[in-house]
Design a protein around this nucleic acid. Structure first.
Lengths: 140, 140
DNA sequence: CTGCCACCTCAAGTTAACTTTAAGTCAATA
DNA sequence: TATTGACTTAAAGTTAACTTGAGGTGGCAG
């Protein structure tokens, strides 16, 4: 059993964050000693996974979905694979954007918008990034 | 010359966002017609670049730095390439994380933390993600 | 000239993900 | 037993990136 400061130390996460995560249902404490929360050490694994997800740009809510209405530590493997695929798509877009930045830095066209290369990259970057060439557009 | 609704239509960005961007120094209007802002059409290119940067996960402040204390449209090519490199590193991490998610979904180790594969992925994912194996750690 | 309406400004509201603060509790130590 | 100090809760504060709302202005169609 670990108290919150122990978990904080071992996970590198602020205690306030751990309480916040518990409040949001991302982790659970298994009991109390007086007022003080007690955690089992598998919370550390859970926290590692959460950090992994956060680093990948997923919201806490999305991460919560990755864990089953779980019998303990069980992870929802299907959701996990879904997220991996999602991440794959993100990566594709980031590659395009990276190439777009490099291109923009090097291209000497007077206006980037006239460069087909640049326009292609914008379109790969995703929704709302591409101004239509001339005229009508979805506005919100 | 374009008024704000024209820019909004062509860029697909809400007028409020355009005003906000101007306030933050990311775009400029070139004059007024009465109260109404007037933009030249190269603002569209600028906006495309901003969207590009946002889609890549850069903050408005970071994006602002990508533009020179600029003689007009000139882009700070050096900063642009820096950001591309930064993005490259982000991509590397995301690839690791994606692999980490896939691994976690498939690995049958009782505890992922005991799996060297998983630990390697965590460490690739970056700062603060890796709980030390046992004991002493940076806490904030 | 009058009034409309798209635009304006400035302030306040919104969301996510936390942190900070104030006031309280309680197990362990002296 | 009294004090200490790490922990507790609840509420409020913080930041980024916007949006929304209230109240104002001024070209231009009629």
């Amino acid at each position: 059993m670990l108290d919150i400061s122990e978990v904080s130390k071992r996970s590198g996460q602020a205690a306030s964050k751990l309480r916040y995560y518990e409040e949001k249902g991302l982790i659970q404490s298994v009991g109390r000693h007086g007022l003080k929360r007690l955690f089992t050490k598998d919370v550390l694994e859970r926290l590692a996974l959460i950090s992994l997800g956060r680093a990948a740009g997923f919201s806490l809510e999305e991460i919560r979905e990755m864990f089953s209405k779980s019998s303990g530590l069980e992870i929802n493997r299907k959701k996990l694979l879904q997220k991996a695929d999602e991440l794959d798509r993100k990566i594709q877009r980031m590659v395009s954007i990276r190439d777009g930045l490099r291109h923009t830095a090097n291209c000497r066209e007077p206006s980037h918008m006239d460069c087909p290369n640049f326009r292609r990259v914008l379109s790969a970057a995703g929704r709302g990034v591409i101004p239509p060439l001339e005229g009508i557009s979805k506005n919100r």
